[in-house]
């Protein structure tokens, strides 16, 4: 009945214990919800000698959100928690909605935010909104911690900057200003249980009805989340909701992506979807800002 390659299983109860294990065990994989890792084990894509289950560590399960002080989300916070937390839904709606679009309900109860980031899949649901909210993450290893920007974390398809012996402790979301608007959108084959053809988050910072600053981050169009350079240039200094500007922003984003054709969509269709999502999200922000 065993279809997995043998491994030893460890379940540290404290962060120190976990970091010690990570520092001393060679050939390990960290296990959180297992919704990506178990599949990789079953598919024999990986053969770790040791599995280190980090779900019981208190620091990875903390959740703090305060008025004016942003939020700190432990790495093992589940996708479902982020979907259903009213506080997160109110303050970081684009992120909460994105977390609620991962897999199906059972996958979201198991899957964690650190797992979604560390898996670093090109179509991952949560990175684009986290990057738009300027989120940071705390990475811990024996002997020290570092805080990095989520935007610098993923470097390629299933590649990131995690070092040997390091884990994601938490994700830090700064307090958004009342004039900051972030929207998340995606296109996929069905509404549930799908992998996105393209997903996208757009952030707009307003001064009255003038766009002071903007960000556009796209998923599933490159080997890592693609941060647009041209969309902010097009948007800055313009009035929110100006259809001519919206059309130009959509074209700007389309000119930057070089997606692939795969089983889910052709490259050409993905480029169309990029334009459609830019228009949709900018119109949603304009409606919200009114």
């Amino acid at each position: 009945m065993n279809i997995l390659t043998p491994f030893e299983y460890y379940r540290p109860e404290t962060l120190d214990e976990a970091l010690e294990l990570l520092a001393t065990k060679e050939d390990y994989k960290i296990l959180a919800g297992g919704t990506d890792l178990m599949i990789q084990l079953k598919e024999k894509m990986i053969h770790p000698a040791n599995i280190i289950d980090v779900t019981q560590i208190p620091e990875l399960n903390e959740f703090a959100i305060k008025d004016g002080e942003g939020a700190v989300i432990g790495g093992c916070t589940t996708d479902a928690f982020c979907e259903f937390s009213k506080e997160l839904r109110d303050k970081y709606p684009a992120f909460s909605i994105a977390a609620g679009e991962i897999g199906g309900p059972q996958v979201r109860e198991m899957g964690t935010i650190a797992g979604n980031l560390a898996n670093s899949g090109p179509s991952a649901e949560t990175p684009s909104s986290l990057i738009c909210y300027d989120a940071k993450m705390t990475l811990a290893k024996k002997g020290g911690e570092r805080v990095v920007d989520v935007k610098d974390f993923i470097t390629g398809n299933r590649r990131n900057i995690l070092e040997e012996g390091e884990l994601i402790k938490n994700i830090i979301l700064p307090e958004p200003a009342a004039t900051t608007h972030v929207k998340y959108g995606y296109v996929a084959m069905r509404r549930m249980m799908e992998i996105d053809i393209v997903n996208m988050s757009i952030r707009v910072d307003l001064d009255g009805d003038t766009i002071k600053d903007a960000k556009c981050v796209m998923g599933s169009v490159a080997i890592r989340p693609l941060i647009s350079e041209k969309v902010p240039e097009v948007l800055k200094g313009t009035k929110i909701g100006d259809e001519a500007v919206i059309a130009k922003a959509a074209e700007a984003a389309q000119s930057e992506v070089h997606p692939i054709s795969d089983i889910r969509a052709t490259a050409e269709y993905r480029v169309d979807v990029v334009g459609a999502l830019v228009r949709k999200l900018l119109r949603e922000i304009a409606a919200e800002a009114k």
Partner: peptide, 15 residues
């Protein structure tokens, strides 16, 4: 209390 998938769960992790 949460509906989850037993095909992606290690039994040993359920202690």
């Amino acid at each position: 209390g949460k509906a989850v998938l037993s095909c992606l769960t290690l039994a040993i992790a359920c202690q």
